[in-house]
């Protein structure tokens, strides 16, 4: 492998403000085999940052470290100016950090609407009488939130999306009318989108997406791209792990390449595409001389 192209930790082009996420010198190993080695990266608000790399490069491990499901051996994670390295996952989420999972982690026996609603209501105290009172008559799912949108409006911290009911949020991600579908009965592509909507429901400032495009057809993937760009334009920071390179190249402002747990390159889509180190990482050993024998 060629020498590591150090990521730019200094101020980012976007306004010079604080990065939404700063990962510094993070290392993780499992039983002596190292999964991440001194990873540094920053995700500025208002951008879509791509994270790519071959299978087993450590992308999902990095997501687990950022969201708190995996404790790093070394290094620190900052969410804006808060050190979240030792913080429990639910506390990070309350700060505005949402994620999706490569292998779906939906609330499978709830409906799509209920999945989103759990996210929307995540800051509500369950012992508040109002919620029990509503449940006396109405069914769970989308309907119960309808007509009470002002209350829910206040819950959604981010103004990224002007949507406040499960129905509207689902419609926003292209799943209008599907809120009564049971989540585990939906095709992968749609289920992934439900997961995305659930993440958006907590009003995140940083969105970690682990292969949201897999299982989507061409049109759906297009729509996903448009949505992510729009989310970023409202100031949200998006970190995207994706194998659909067409999508990554099209919407990312910046791309990081992870290989063997190291960040081997950082740059614009054009720079990454023509980077020989990246090609080598994707194509395997000895390929710098070209793709054929």
């Amino acid at each position: 492998m060629s020498p590591v192209d150090e990521p730019r930790l200094a101020s980012e082009p976007n306004g010079g403000g604080l990065p939404a996420l700063t990962v510094s010198q993070v290392s993780v190993s499992f039983g002596g085999v190292s999964a991440l080695t001194d990873v540094n990266l920053v995700v500025p608000p208002g951008t879509v940052t791509g994270l790519i790399g071959p299978n087993g490069a450590g992308k999902t491990t990095l997501f687990n470290v950022i969201s708190g499901l995996q404790e790093p051996d070394r290094g620190a994670i900052h969410f804006f100016d808060t050190d979240v390295t030792m913080m429990k996952p639910y506390r990070r989420a309350r700060l505005g950090l949402a994620r999706t999972f490569q292998r779906l982690e939906l609330f499978g026996t709830l409906t799509a609407g209920e999945n989103v609603q759990v996210g929307l209501e995540s800051t509500v105290k369950w012992w508040q009488w109002r919620h029990l009172r509503k449940a006396l008559w109405r069914n769970s799912g989308a309907e119960s939130a309808r007509g009470d949108s002002t209350a829910v409006d206040a819950l959604v911290g981010s103004d990224a999306l002007a949507v406040t009911t499960p129905d509207r949020l689902l419609a926003e991600v292209g799943l209008g009318g599907m809120s009564n579908e049971q989540a585990n009965a939906m095709p992968t592509g749609l289920a992934r989108t439900v997961e995305l909507a659930r993440g958006l429901a907590i009003g995140p400032k940083l969105l970690l997406l682990d292969e949201p495009g897999s299982g989507l057809d061409e049109a759906e993937s297009q729509a996903l791209g448009t949505l992510l760009v729009r989310l970023a334009s409202t100031g949200m920071a998006v970190l995207l792990v994706e194998h659909d390179m067409e999508l990554v190249m099209r919407i990312c402002d910046r791309i990081l390449v992870l290989d063997f747990g190291h960040v081997i390159a950082t740059g614009t889509p054009e720079a990454i595409r023509s980077d020989p180190t990246v090609q080598a990482a994707y194509l395997g050993a000895g390929s710098t001389s070209g793709g054929t024998q």
Partner: peptide, 8 residues
Amino acid sequence: EQFVTTAL
């Protein structure tokens, strides 16, 4: 394989 060259 994902690594094309090696495999080929």
